[in-house]
C-alpha cells in the first residue's frame, strides 16, 4: 500500500486516496483532543471554547492566568509534590523487585514459570476498582490506609507487571554466553551483573521503570480509596476539579502533564532504538 503500483486502475487510485483520507481522519481523532486543550489553557476568559478574539490571534485574548493560578494555589503544588514522592518511591521499588524477578523468570531452570508469571502480571489485569476495594479493607486493618506507605505499596504492586514484562522482553534477546565469557575471564557474579548484564538490559529496565512511574503518576482509583487529604495527588486533585467545578486551571495542569508525557515518550523511544541497536536490529 505504501506506493501505488504503476498499473493501478482508476478504481484502485480512488481507493488509495480515500484510504489515506480515512487514516488521516483516524489520526485526527487520536491526537486532536489532546492538541485542542493546549491553546485553550491560555484562554484569558474562563471558557472552554475558542472565542472569536482567540481565532483572530488577538494577544489580549491569551493569558497565563491559569498557570499563575496553579502556582498561587498551594493545593496544586502540594499534590504535585505528593505525586512525585509516591511515584518515585513506587518506581524504585517496582523496578528493583521487577528486574530481579525478570532475571529469575528468564532462567531456563525456573520452576512453575507460567503460574508465577500469571500471579506477577495479575495487578495489571484485575480491574482497578476491585483492587482499590480489596486494598481499602485490608490496608485499613493494619492502619495503612491514609498513609504514604500504603499508597506506595499499592502503586508498587500496580507498576511491577510493566517492569517484569519489559525486562523479560529485553532478556529474551540476551546472549547468555556473555555471562559465561565474563565468568571465564575471572569476573565475580556481582561484577558480571553490574558490568555485563546491567548495561545490556538497562534500556528495558529504564523503560519498565518509566511505565511504572506513569502508572503511579496517573493512578486515581486506588488513591480515591486509600488516600486522605494529606496524600492528595495530581490525578486526585484533577478528579475533584472535574467532578465539582471544572475550571481552565485543569486545562493548564493537563497541558503541563502532556508536556511531561511527551518528554517520557521521547526517552522511551530513544531507549528502544538504543536497545535495538545493541541487539543488532537496525532501527531503519
Amino acid at each position: 500500500m505504501s506506493n501505488l503500483p504503476p498499473y493501478a486502475g482508476p478504481a484502485e487510485r480512488t481507493w488509495y486516496y480515500t484510504y489515506r483520507l480515512i487514516c488521516a481522519a483516524i489520526f485526527v481523532f487520536l491526537i486532536a483532543p489532546i492538541i485542542v486543550m493546549v491553546p485553550l489553557s491560555f484562554n484569558a476568559e474562563p471558557y472552554f471554547t475558542f472565542r472569536p478574539e482567540m481565532l483572530a490571534l488577538n494577544p489580549d485574548a491569551f493569558s497565563m492566568r491559569w498557570y499563575q493560578d496553579i502556582i498561587d494555589n498551594r493545593q496544586w503544588l502540594f499534590s504535585m509534590k505528593n505525586s512525585f514522592i509516591i511515584g518515585i518511591a513506587a518506581t524504585l521499588l517496582a523496578t528493583t523487585l521487577g528486574t530481579l524477578a525478570a532475571l529469575g523468570l528468564s532462567r531456563p531452570d525456573m520452576p512453575y514459570k507460567g503460574v508465577i508469571m500469571g500471579i506477577l502480571i495479575s495487578p495489571m489485569i484485575v480491574p482497578l476498582i476491585i483492587t482499590a476495594a480489596g486494598l481499602f479493607f485490608f490496608y485499613s486493618r493494619f492502619g495503612l490506609s491514609q498513609t504514604f506507605v500504603g499508597i506506595i505499596m499499592a502503586h508498587t504492586a500496580l507498576g511491577t507487571p510493566f517492569v517484569v514484562i519489559t525486562v523479560t522482553a529485553t532478556l529474551s534477546g540476551f546472549d547468555t554466553s556473555l555471562i559465561r565469557a565474563s565468568a571465564g575471564l575471572g569476573a565475580s557474579q556481582t561484577r558480571t551483573f553490574f558490568k555485563v548484564i546491567m548495561p545490556l538490559i538497562s534500556p528495558g529496565v529504564i523503560s519498565g521503570g518509566l511505565f511504572a512511574f506513569v502508572t503511579s503518576f496517573d493512578e486515581v482509583v486506588v488513591v480515591l480509596f486509600l488516600s486522605g487529604f494529606e496524600q492528595r495527588t495530581i490525578p486526585r486533585q484533577m478528579w475533584a476539579g472535574i467532578r465539582e467545578q471544572i475550571s481552565p486551571t485543569i486545562l493548564a495542569v493537563a497541558t503541563i502533564l502532556v508536556c511531561i508525557s511527551i518528554a517520557l515518550l521521547t526517552v522511551v523511544e530513544l531507549l528502544r532504538r538504543r536497545s535495538e541497536r545493541l541487539r543488532g536490529i537496525s532501527p531503519g
Partner: peptide
C-alpha cells in the same frame, strides 16, 4: 502516554 484524566478532560472540553 498521556494521563487518563487529561484525555477525559479533553473530551469534556
Amino acid at each position: 502516554w498521556t494521563s487518563l484524566l487529561v484525555r477525559t478532560t479533553a473530551w469534556i472540553v
